[in-house]
């Protein structure tokens, strides 16, 4: 049974369904090189032993990575990882990981 109301609403519903399907894709920008690996250790949980990066100032992440790379900031493992990224890559990565994914 299809009522006239359903007939009128159907094309809109299709559009909404298409939008819903496409929405997560639009919300997600492609990860710059290396960035998608970070969530293997850095989760969304605040206060975890390995700190969450979500919501941090990207500049702070860049500064931390630079300090890890130069040895200014002590680390167990991030000094070894930070050395794998150029300044430009680090900036792109910081901007991406500071967002919620």
């Amino acid at each position: 049974m299809v009522t006239p109301w359903q007939q009128r609403i159907a094309p809109i519903a299709v559009a909404v369904a298409l939008l819903c399907a496409a929405a997560p894709a639009m919300a997600q920008s492609a990860a710059p090189p290396g960035a998608s690996s970070c969530s293997g250790c850095h989760g969304p949980q605040p206060g975890a032993a390995v700190p969450s990066l979500e919501g941090l100032d990207p500049e702070a992440i860049v500064a931390a990575m630079e300090a890890f790379r130069s040895g200014q900031r002590e680390a167990t493992i991030m000094n070894r990882i930070a050395k794998g990224f150029s300044d430009e890559e680090t900036r792109a990565l910081a901007a991406w990981v500071s967002q919620k994914h």
Partner: peptide, 23 residues
């Protein structure tokens, strides 16, 4: 994650981004 991103690009007709990966 890199594979999923590449498949996403390929299925949308875009060129996959050259990745870096961490272990």
């Amino acid at each position: 994650k890199v594979c999923a991103a590449a498949i996403t690009s390929l299925l949308r007709g875009q060129a996959p981004v050259e990745p870096k990966l961490i272990n």
